[in-house]
């Protein structure tokens, strides 16, 4: 059935696909995951702080982000923010937000909502006695968080955080709507140039599947190794 397929298109373009496309995808995934976990952890801490207002703000943010389609956020951020920025600083022209920084900020803000729910569960899974013991030793809130609670929460949640990162890896393909050359963007450009749509999209699917499948296997292995002895 593949008799009239021409897979040489892949051989001819693999450098472009991987060194341009996949490199962008992986960089965006890694940076957005780190940014999302940091911001998500802060949001989770706000949510659990027991202080006035902060928990509601955190909750509203998470619910807002989770009820928007990601594509919309990407579009909104890329097309509207230059104008909002222009309006805020009163510039003559829309301010320039590069495609990379635009998508990085979008993914960080969006994923933070999901990571914050994971970190919230992680923090809540640590017995109350742990923070009591930390306080009793004289550690401040931030010292106790940084040295006692978050390291344990993070280790407990690492498999879930990584699984969410795999989802993020797949989601980054949506930046192709901004005609950014991520892996899918690169594949679709080659496909259109050479008129080999089926071959290229099939290949892209295989690559996404392989990366995610192998990453999931590694996460499961890691899960067994990081567990804290109790």
């Amino acid at each position: 059935m593949f008799s009239n397929f021409d897979f040489s298109v892949i051989l001819n373009s693999w450098r472009y696909l991987f060194f341009d496309g996949m490199a962008f995808t992986l960089t965006l995934t890694a940076l957005a995951a780190v940014g999302g976990v940091v911001l998500g952890t802060l949001i989770a801490m706000m949510r659990l702080s027991g202080l006035p207002v902060l928990p509601q703000v955190a909750k509203a943010y998470v619910n807002f982000m989770r009820s928007l389609p990601l594509v919309l956020v990407i579009f909104w951020f890329y097309f509207l923010v230059p104008y909002i920025g222009q309006w805020i600083i009163g510039a003559e022209r829309p301010i320039q937000v590069g495609a990379f920084s635009s998508s990085l900020i979008t993914f960080t803000l969006f994923e933070a909502a999901y990571f914050s729910e994971i970190m919230r569960a992680g923090i809540q899974s640590i017995p109350k006695g742990q923070s009591a013991a930390a306080s009793a030793l004289g550690l401040t809130y931030w010292q106790s968080m940084g040295n006692v609670i978050l390291p344990q929460a993070f280790r407990n949640m690492l498999p879930v955080l990584l699984t969410q990162t795999i989802v993020l890896f797949q989601d980054t393909s949506l930046v192709y709507v901004l005609s950014i050359t991520d892996f899918l963007g690169a594949a679709s450009k080659v496909a259109q140039r050479d008129g080999r749509l089926v071959e290229m999209y099939l290949f892209a699917a295989v690559v996404y599947f392989a990366v995610c499948f192998i990453a999931s296997l590694l996460v499961r292995r890691l899960q067994r190794r990081v567990a804290i002895i109790r």
């Binding site: 017995p127 006695g129 013991a133 040295n147 280790r155």
Partner: peptide, 25 residues
């Protein structure tokens, strides 16, 4: 303070359990 359920920090070695607050506080 000593608690009913010990509340040692399970992610730290005994040495680190003993020195954490000495160093930070």
């Amino acid at each position: 303070m000593v608690f009913q359920h010990f509340e040692l920090f399970p992610h730290l070695s005994i040495t680190d359990n003993l020195s954490l607050a000495q160093r930070k506080v």
